[in-house]
Nucleic acid binder design. Sequence first.
DNA 1: CGGTATTTGTACGTATGTATG
DNA 2: GCATACATACGTACAAATACC
Lengths: 134, 134
Amino acid sequence: MIDPASGVPVYRQLADVLRARIVAGEWLPGARLPSETRLVQEYGIGRTTVRRAIAALRSAGVIEVVHGWGMRVPLPREVERVRGESGSVVSVRMPTPLERATWALADGVPMVVVTGPDGLAEAFPGDRTEIDIP
Amino acid sequence: MIDPASGVPVYRQLADVLRARIVAGEWLPGARLPSETRLVQEYGIGRTTVRRAIAALRSAGVIEVVHGWGMRVPLPREVERVRGESGSVVSVRMPTPLERATWALADGVPMVVVTGPDGLAEAFPGDRTEIDIP
DNA sequence: CGGTATTTGTACGTATGTATG
DNA sequence: GCATACATACGTACAAATACC
């Protein structure tokens, strides 16, 4: 299933395989994925390589990791609707460290920024906010 | 400047320091940052640790890396304004591998998604798209 | 309460490959 | 061809969080 000689990096192949298995519904949100050690054995690759694949999926927001417990697909979040005022502009970016700490943001969660006609901008956590266009 | 005994991981300390230096304008967009080897020497830490800090800044969209050349602060992009139709909802997420390939997205670039009243959704690259609310 | 096993986190080193100039 | 710089992948050791007994 994973071919070290294919030209595609092994960690990327593993990340793709795991993402496909997740999309296929093999692990529902909240269910624990195989441990690092298990993946090392199952695919016959080094732990460093397994962790690179995991890091990629984390920063893509596909999985979340709990220290000492394991990995899982994130549970869906309750979203807050924010009314986008007329004349505003909506943009997107990744959070600053301060924003990440303020809202306890997981990896791979962007911010959504609403800039009003007056130039004042307000940023919201992207995993629990949607902007309504009235 | 970096204290291995502070309790804060070394790679995170380095990432914070580099981010602060970037925000302070020490390296303008397009200018090359110090090489990995230079950072290893300058801060007296391992290359693995330096690369972890770099990976964090990449997935945060703070820097971009060119293989064989070095690291730099990304240049500003020309943004396309998309008109948000009335009744639409704007949300945010990280791109899929297909979307990353389609638009040649760098690390740490989110997608902005506009879902119409009919339920049809359209996704745009977040580093070159803004949604206008008329 | 303590001890143990499991699991992820941090940090280092080494070797080799690939892209740029 | 050569030097520089980033990319991949393996290994080791120890620390820290969690869960269970």
